[in-house]
Every structure is written in structure tokens, then in C-alpha cells.
Nucleic acid binder design. Structure first.
Lengths: 141, 141
DNA sequence: TACATAACGCAATAATGTTGCATTTTATTA
DNA sequence: TAATAAAATGCAACATTATTGCGTTATGTA
């Protein structure tokens, strides 16, 4: 994982502020997508809540992170793979939602066979979401 | 589609109130899942907002409707197929999200090949969500 | 170091979701 | 059909989540 967050921000025409770099550090340190509420708690007083909303929105627009809505309708964020760009995100997203710890794992290496959809419908992206219990939580019990 | 909503409610041990029947009528009349906000608007003054929340929650618990979270994190509701029961909902849900009209279509007839997930992860349900433009919206443009 | 602009923090407001409690409705049975 | 118990509703209050406007601060550049 590239750790030159300032460089990454500059590449996309964004200023490298402390807040933005902190957010990137937290997101990048995870093996799973992080929820907006969790992120908010972790940032604490370091960043205003409104600023966090704006940072995440900007990151998403610039293709730096991607947003995944979990089972409960909560937004989760993960660093985009290199395949994502500003204009074209990778169009297949696979995630695993753990019902125990609520983590969202990106399963980017999966590949799905072609899906037959009804006549007249046009697909732009496909998202597969698996619910269950993750490796960590299984081991603990 | 069974239209004996009072009977359906009695079967599950619920009282057949005007509000509940209205909600069922609206949901059943659709070819797609309906969002909570849309439902709220359609009910207008007929049902209190709090009551609507409670009705939907109860319906979901009893297996009368199922909830689908759409792209935006908004709850959408659709009548459960006969395969759903109180204790065991059908564990594969396939939906199509239209980015133009925001409707959510249930694609219940699709079948997915087995999915290989990483070691240690246990699957309880699978949900496939396709984003694009629906038949209606394609015809209009 | 000075400057223009982007980004931030704060306050206010909107939208969404939840809880407690008094009142009303429903289904039942006398 | 009237009386009754339990369930469901409506209202008020509150909690949480998300958005907007605007003055101030930080960033990158010349």
C-alpha cells in the first residue's frame, strides 16, 4: 500500500491537510472498510464532524476511496484499488459483512460469471454482498 | 398476489388495522420495492410517521415484507415471496437499483452459482445488487 | 513573506429514527 | 350487542445523522 498520502492528494488536485491525511491513514490501516461512525469516533476532536463528511465526499468524488453501504444502511469507506480512477470506478464490488463485529471486508479477488438480467434493463455495476461471520469472530468463539 | 391482507395479518397473529392494510395495499401494488420516504409521502396524514416505522418493523419481523437497503442507504420494502417464513427468510436476494427513478426491483428468479469465499468465513446469506437503468426509464429516453 | 484559494470550524437547520405514555382500536366473549 | 383486555396508534419529546452558510484558518505558490 502506497503511504505517500500527501502525494496522492496532490495528484488529484487536493490540498494535503492534516485532517485528510489522518483520515487516509486510518482507512488504509484496516483490512476492512471502516464505517463513518467508527471513523468519527476515532478522529474524535481532531476533525470536526462536518469536515469529515466533506472529506469523505471529496475522496469519493475523486476516486480515492469508495463507499459501501452495509446491511444497516451505514456508509463504510475503503481505499480504492489502483483499478479505480476519477471517472471510472471498478464496476464490480464484492463485500463480506460480518454480523458479529460489523466489519465490511472487500473481496476484490472474486470473479462472478455473467448474470442474466431481464430484457430492457441496462447494467452499469454489480455488487455482491455476503453476510455471515468473519474469520476473526469465528476463531474467538 | 393474495389480496386478503386481513387474513394474512391474522395468520401471523397481528391485528388487521386500517393502517396496516393500507401499507400492505401500497406495497403490493408495486412492481418494485418501495422506499420508506415514498411510502411516508403516500400515506400522508393517514398514518403517523412513528406508526409507519413500527408497522414496517413488525412486518419485517413477522416475515410479511422484507427490507432492502438501496445504494443510498435508504430502506426499501417489498412483499415477501411465499418462500419466506417467520423464522427463515429466503437467503438469497437479488435486486436491481435504477439510478434514474430510484426504484428497486426484486429479481427473485435469478440463480447464482456457488461462490468461493475465503477460509474461515461463514456465509449466512448472499445479496446481489445490480445498478443501472430499468426498462421503464430506458423506454422513456 | 505575501497572496489567492481551498479547506476548515462553528452555528443553525433539516432530515431521519427512537422512546414513553395516554388514548383509541381491535378481537373476543359474555 | 355491550363489556373487556390487549394490541396498536398518535403525540410529544428527544436522539442521531446529515446538510448549508459563512467567517476564519491553512495550504501551496509566486
Amino acid at each position: 500500500m502506497n503511504r505517500d498520502f500527501a502525494g496522492l492528494l496532490h495528484q488529484t488536485g487536493l490540498k494535503a491537510t492534516h485532517s485528510r491525511i489522518s483520515v487516509l491513514e486510518i482507512i488504509a490501516d484496516r483490512d476492512a472498510a471502516i464505517s463513518q461512525p467508527t471513523l468519527e469516533k476515532m478522529m474524535g476532536d481532531e476533525v470536526d464532524r462536518v469536515t469529515l463528511y466533506r472529506i469523505l465526499k471529496t475522496f469519493e468524488e475523486k476516486g480515492i476511496v469508495h463507499k459501501v453501504i452495509d446491511l444497516h444502511g451505514t456508509a463504510n469507506y475503503a481505499i480504492c484499488s489502483s483499478q479505480c480512477s476519477v471517472h471510472e470506478h471498478h464496476d464490480e464490488h464484492f463485500h463480506f459483512n460480518c454480523t458479529n463485529c460489523d466489519k465490511v471486508y472487500c473481496l476484490n479477488d472474486l470473479h462472478l460469471p455473467a448474470i442474466q438480467i431481464p430484457q430492457g434493463f441496462v447494467t452499469s455495476s454489480v455488487s455482491l454482498s455476503i453476510t455471515g461471520v468473519c474469520k476473526n469472530c469465528n476463531q474467538q468463539s
